[in-house]
């Protein structure tokens, strides 16, 4: 059993396998109190494992995060499937369909944008603040490249990636943002939780500018994106 802090929320994990403890070592919280607790049943772990080659511990960890993300909207925190980079104190999110090249583009930022670092390469959390802004948080669930840190930064912009011959970035209209976002947000769960997430989505549309980047895998792709999205 361990208590971690994610996006300012203290969560107790009642784990059966050591994997998740190792994974969460940078997120351990001091003290005994917590906002909610998660536990995963053997049945869920078996279902997650299926015929796959992943260990029970790994599958437990996947289920733990799923449960956490179902609870977090009550604390105005939600998962956005994306890669989030931090540059000079601001966070920039990239979302893409699987296989489009989120990791490749993230690597291009690391190579070409001074001071760029990855907050979370796959499953970061966003918190809606009282003033309507969003803050991005790293989490122990980082994706297969395992890029991430226990840090946070105000979110400056969100960009949807598409492959293209040339590098072009444009603003995204609300309609388009909605249909793209629905693929990146975790909109399942019980009614109250889904309603909360839709309310967060509504606030999210107003919180930051959204862009669509058509890009190739050249260094210029990162520069074109950063120039347009850069805060100030």
């Amino acid at each position: 059993m361990l208590i971690i802090e994610l996006a300012g929320v203290r969560i107790r994990i009642e784990n059966k396998y050591p994997f998740v403890e190792q994974q969460c070592r940078d997120y351990l919280a001091e003290g005994e109190d917590f906002s909610f607790s998660v536990a995963v049943s053997d049945e869920e772990i078996a279902l997650e494992k299926g015929d796959g080659a992943f260990s029970e511990g790994y599958c437990e960890s996947i289920c733990v995060y799923r449960h956490i993300c179902e609870e977090l909207p009550r604390y105005r925190v939600f998962l956005m499937h994306s890669s989030i980079l931090e540059v000079d104190g601001y966070a920039y999110a990239f979302a893409a369909k699987s296989g489009v090249g989120k990791s490749t583009h993230t690597a291009l930022w690391l190579k070409n944008i001074p001071n760029a670092r990855v907050l979370n390469g796959d499953k970061p959390l966003l918190r809606l603040e009282e003033d309507g802004s969003l803050t991005a948080f790293g989490t122990p669930w980082n994706g297969k490249e395992n890029w991430g840190e226990n840090r946070s930064a105000p979110l400056a912009a969100i960009c949807f990636l598409e492959r293209g011959e040339v590098n072009e970035i444009r603003s995204a209209a609300e309609d388009e943002v909605l249909s793209r976002l629905v693929h990146q947000l975790y909109l399942r769960g019980d009614r109250d939780s889904v309603i909360l997430r839709l309310q967060l989505l509504d606030a999210m549309l107003r919180a930051v500018p959204f862009y669509v980047l058509h890009c190739n895998i050249s260094d210029e792709a990162a520069l074109v994106a950063y120039r347009a999205m850069k805060k100030n």
Partner: peptide
């Protein structure tokens, strides 16, 4: 199903 106003439109999604 549940429906909520999101931005300028209404969005209906399944629950359960």
């Amino acid at each position: 199903f549940t429906i909520q106003k999101v931005g300028g439109a209404y969005v209906a999604v399944p629950v359960g």
